[in-house]
């Protein structure tokens, strides 16, 4: 019986240091981990004054401050962009150039980009 109790005493010391280490690890992981889920767009930025591949295959998308878009001059709402784009892509448009106009927030630009990425355009670039 006495031998048993002596063994238990030894395990007490091991346990406290174990808790110590686990607690430190927990603190480290709590402070360093992020729970944000990141996504990303691969963009190509049109060179200023650069030459376009050919004007017919390029779609010019203006994003205006009131949330309206214009596809080669045709006004379109963001919700209808998907349908309006299929008109252009069926005619062989491969590239889109996105140009923000006026006080457009990045959030609006990203929403537009997301729709553009989901279609079968091969490249989307940004320009002023």
């Amino acid at each position: 019986m006495r031998l048993h109790s002596a063994r238990r005493r030894k395990s007490i010391i091991g346990l406290t240091s174990l808790i110590d280490v686990i607690f430190l690890l927990l603190l480290f992981f709590m402070l360093t981990s992020t729970f944000l889920r990141f996504t990303g767009f691969d963009l190509s930025v049109a060179a200023a004054g650069g030459d376009a591949p050919s004007p017919k295959s390029v779609l010019l998308v203006h994003v205006k401050s009131d949330g309206m878009l214009s596809l080669n001059g045709r006004p379109v709402k963001l919700e209808d962009l998907d349908n309006a784009l299929s008109d252009f892509t069926s005619r062989g448009v491969k590239h889109a150039v996105l140009r923000p106009r006026g006080e457009v927030a990045v959030q609006t630009l990203v929403e537009t980009l997301e729709v553009l990425q989901s279609t079968n355009l091969t490249s989307v670039s940004l320009a002023r």
Binding site: F38, G40, S44, V45, A47, P100, G102, A105, T108, R128
Partner: peptide
């Protein structure tokens, strides 16, 4: 402002970066 963002990205492009990833 998206125009401001594009201005900055254009400078990256002018320095030779072909690809930029917007996170």
């Amino acid at each position: 402002n998206a125009v401001r963002l594009v201005e900055i990205l254009e400078k990256f492009r002018a320095a030779g970066h072909q690809k930029i990833r917007l996170i």
